[in-house]
Amino acid sequence: MKAAILGKRFTKRVCTTLALVTGLLVSTLSSLASAEQMVSHGDYMIHYNAFNSSFIQPDVAQSYGITRSKTKALLNISVLQKQADGSTKPVSAVVKGEVVNLIAQKQELSFQKIDETNALYYIGDFGFTDDQVLRFSLQVQPDPNQPAYSISFEQRFYVD
């Protein structure tokens, strides 16, 4: 009888510990997944992120001529230049890129420059299918007298 009670307590303690460890692991992985995507090259910081176009509000999409769709996503790129006083300011850049799926089907990205008060960014759109992994290759050239910086990353997309 005592052995059965001790066995149940041990099992309960192990299950509780596993649940706690699993919860911590999931929260750590989710915070890593939402981590900022940025590279730094000299005085430039290049921020990039890709997301479903349906995440944009319809009125905002319409004002910028962006098509919202369950199977269309957007790639957003902004370039900031570090200033002598430690601040940063948005700067223009030549932005080119492509996205390739796992069976080597390629889409060239065409970027629209969006210039707002205190913000400057480039938006490119691309199609995807549900549960699709896409590989991005970007060339970002903030200084026309210097070669472009290369950025590569991979991301999975889902139809929402």
Rank of each mutant, 00 (worst) to 15 (best):
S69W: 14
Q112D: 04
A50S: 05
E36H: 06
A61W: 01
R13P: 07
S30A: 07
V26F: 08
A35P: 02
Y44T: 05
S78Y: 06
L74H: 08
S137E: 07
V99D: 03
L6F: 02
P147E: 01
K2M: 00
A50D: 00
D59C: 02
S53R: 01
G65T: 00
Q105N: 09
G97V: 06
K113A: 08
S30H: 04
L102P: 08
A4Y: 05
A93D: 11
L74Q: 03
T17M: 15
A93E: 05
K82D: 04
Y149D: 04
Q37M: 12
T129G: 13
A93C: 11
L20D: 08
K70R: 14
L24H: 02
H41I: 09
P147Q: 08
D130H: 08
I114P: 15
S110T: 03
Q146K: 00
K2F: 01
Y158R: 08
V159T: 05
L18R: 08
K8M: 14
S150K: 11
S92F: 12
I151P: 02
V159F: 01
V21Y: 09
I77N: 13
L6I: 13
E154H: 12
A148P: 01
K96Y: 14
T11E: 10
V99A: 06
M1K: 06
A61V: 04
M38N: 15
L6D: 08
L102H: 02
M45K: 11
L18E: 08
S30E: 11
A148S: 04
A4R: 10
S53G: 11
G42A: 11
Q141V: 04
P144R: 13
K12N: 15
F157V: 01
Q37R: 12
Y121L: 12
I66D: 02
L74V: 10
A19F: 15
K89W: 06
L102F: 07
V21D: 03
S137D: 09
T67R: 03
A33L: 11
S63Q: 15
E108K: 07
F51N: 03
I114M: 13
S54H: 13
L120N: 13
E116K: 05
A104K: 10
